[in-house]
Each structure stands twice: as structure tokens, then as C-alpha cells.
Design a protein around this nucleic acid. Structure first.
Lengths: 208, 208
DNA sequence: TAGACTAGAGAACGATCGTTATTCACGCAA
DNA sequence: TTGCGTGAATAACGATCGTTCTCTAGTCTA
């Protein structure tokens, strides 16, 4: 075979394989952090599971907090992708909104489910250091904004989306703590009522 | 003045004043744990704020985890008392259910609000050690059961109470992360719709 | 007054944390 | 072959954790 191996371009040094190493580390480390929390998993355990020496770990990430931030960002990306996929799997307006709760139901019964990683992170680190809570806040806002866009395109009043978001958050925490998938169904049933009420009844307008 | 001081009964030793010391410690320590989390507050800080020496602290409580458990129990008690007071402040059935969200609204605007202590505890310690998550689970179950009793007495179908509980939990986490009291109002508005739907429409019965 | 017991202040202990320095083995140009 | 420099393994560092031990001052009983 011809020798056309992919080899690092000496011009730009090694940042290319650094990037793949970073991605691999985040991917390997995420489930550990999700299962046990950030403080419960030490740097030495990260070294063990990734097979990357501490020296290289600290060259790829300035500190543990940077790893945590990147893990949070990866969680945000996969959450957003999975949610969008479920919502956009149908074109029926009502079902697009209800898809959120079908997405939750499927997640709740998945192996190792332990609640919303962002809510857990807020509970663990919300009282100290401002950077992690800020990321959590941003993720929740993105979710609410996305829900608002979906609801608006369906013709629902502005009041509906926040209510559905609250239902979703409540189902998440309830399912996590109780260890049950039922809250997804209960929240979905409630969402149906709220959606019907919002779509049939006209949006409340301010009285002149 | 006559010398009628209260003095410890030598018959039963000192457990009496031990009990008041324990209560004082829990009361003093609770806001610290709530604000910053359990792991972020060390034993030496507990000694500093309570003025109780480490030796006596460890004589009153076998370990830090026992202090945490007692703090969780005290949170459970005050939550239950405050919620009951708000619910039982009215006799109008519909308002008894909505009182939950008025209770939340008042709480959200209070100084130092940082979300549900139980949800935060679950996020912080849910991944390690089984005792704390068990207490959290029990508290949430008590809340749901209480809501079910209130809903049942109002004549609502069994489906309503879990939906309202999910709304309450969602409002809690959303308000905590966003730092806003608005979720309480939004959840209340949603609850009104769900309550009306449950009370006017007959309870769904299984088809023969 | 003397002696036995107690409680408090704080040092000390072992463990573990995040982070850094040291050691050592190996690939490569001269 | 001989230095040289890179990277992996790991020891070490300072800090902090929960917990225990030491030392000392004081109080109460006989």
C-alpha cells in the first residue's frame, strides 16, 4: 500500500492531536462525574480511567475546574442535540411540545440515570465559585428559550413555554430522587392539559 | 431575688442540657450548610460559629454525617410546618391547593434563598453514601403524600396531586438557578388550569 | 486543703485533595 | 556511540479534610 499516512503537520505543531486527546478525555470522564459528582472524583482517578498522565492532563487543561467546565459544555451539547432530534421528529404542533416529555421518559429509564447533571452541579457547587453556576444558568435559559421558540411557532401564548419548562424540570428532579420514570408520564399528562388550554382559549390580552 | 435557678437534675446526669446544646448547634449550623453546601463547611468552622469545642461536638454527634442528617431532619420539620401553616390558612378547597405556590413565592423572595435544600443535598451527595439520599427521598415522598391528602379531601382525582408536586419541584429548581421568583407565579397559573380541569371534568375511569 | 475527674483549647494524625517537581527510559541527529 | 530532549510514571508538596489526642486549668467532693 502507498505510504500516505496522516501525520501531524510539523508547521502547526501538535494542537491537532491535542484536540482529539481533549475530546477523548472529556468523553471518558463525563459518565464518572455524572455518576458520583465532581468533588468525589479526584485527578488521580481521571488519570487512571483516561490513561493520560497527570503531566499531560495538566498540559491539556489548566486545572480541574477547566475540565469540569468542558464536561458541562459537552453535556449541554448532547442534551440540546437529543432534545432537538426528538422535537423535530414530528411536524404536528401539539406533539412537538409533548415530545419534550417523551424525551424525558426515554431518558429516565436509561441505565445510570441520576437526574439532571446541571441541577446536580448547581446543588454541589452552587454555593461556591461563580463559574459553574453561570454555566448551569445559561443552559437552563437556553432550554427555556428553545421551548419558547417551539411554542411560539405553534401559536401558543407566551405563558405556555415557561409552564412547560417548569413541568420538565419538576419531572426531572422528581424522577431522579424517587428513582422512577412515572413523573415523565404525569408531567406529559399535565402538559397536554396546559397546551389544550393555551391553544383553544385565546391568549390573555391586557385590558384597555 | 430568691435562688431558684434551674439546675441540671443530678439524677439523670446531663442529657437534658446535651439536648439543648444539640438543638442550638443544629440551628446555628443549618444556614451555613444551606448557603454553601455540606462539604464546603468543615468541622473547624462549625466549632467557630457554635462556640462548642471539637471535643464536645464529637461527644454530642458521633460524626459529621450525623450532624448533616439532623440538619436535614430539621429542614424537613420546618418545611412541613411552614407549608401546613400556609395551606391551612384557608378553607376554600381550591385555595388550599394553590397555597403551596403562594408559600413558594414568599420563600423565593426571602433573603439567601438558594433552592430546595433537599434537591441540593441530593446533587451534592446523591452519588455517594446512601443515608443522605434516603432522607431526601423520604422528604419528597412526605410532600407528595401530603399534597395527595389535600387534593383528595378537595375531591380531586388521584392524578392531580402528582402534577402539582411536579410543578412545585420545577418552580423550586427554576427559581433557584435563575435567581428569580417568577416561576412561583408561572407554576401557580399552571396549577389553576390543572385544578380547574381536574375538578370540573370527572375523574378518568378505566374502560370496561 | 488535697485529689480525682471534667471540659476546653488547640496541636497532631492520617488520609486525600489539586498541583508540581523529579526521575528515568527511550527515540533521534551528529 | 553519544548527548539531547521529550514524555510517561510517580514521588512529593502544601493545604485541608474529619477525627483524635494532649495538655492544662478549673471544679467539686471528701
Amino acid at each position: 500500500m502507498t505510504e500516505v499516512e496522516v501525520r501531524p503537520d510539523p508547521a502547526d505543531g501538535v494542537p491537532a492531536e491535542d484536540a482529539v486527546a481533549r475530546a477523548m478525555i472529556i468523553e471518558t470522564v463525563s459518565p464518572l462525574f455524572y455518576a458520583r459528582g465532581f468533588t468525589a472524583v479526584g485527578m488521580d482517578e481521571l488519570r487512571a480511567v483516561t490513561g493520560v498522565s497527570l503531566k499531560r492532563l495538566y498540559r491539556l487543561f489548566p486545572s480541574k475546574e477547566d475540565i469540569i467546565e468542558e464536561v458541562l459544555h459537552s453535556w449541554r451539547d448532547t442534551w440540546e442535540a437529543n432534545l432537538r432530534a426528538q422535537v423535530e421528529s414530528t411536524q404536528v404542533p401539539r406533539e412537538r411540545l409533548l415530545a419534550v416529555f417523551d424525551f424525558l421518559a426515554a431518558w429516565f429509564i436509561s441505565e445510570g440515570f441520576r437526574g439532571c447533571a446541571f441541577i446536580n452541579s448547581f446543588g454541589e457547587l452552587g454555593g461556591i465559585s461563580g463559574r459553574i453556576p453561570a454555566i448551569v444558568r445559561a443552559q437552563k435559559k437556553e432550554f427555556q428559550d428553545y421551548l419558547s421558540r417551539v411554542a411560539t411557532r405553534v401559536g401558543a401564548p407566551d405563558t405556555l413555554a415557561p409552564q412547560l419548562a417548569i413541568l420538565a424540570e419538576g419531572a426531572l428532579t422528581t424522577a431522579a430522587i424517587a428513582g422512577s420514570a412515572e413523573p415523565a408520564r404525569q408531567a406529559r399528562a399535565a402538559a397536554e392539559i396546559l397546551i389544550d388550554a393555551a391553544l383553544t382559549r385565546p391568549a390573555p390580552v391586557t385590558m384597555p
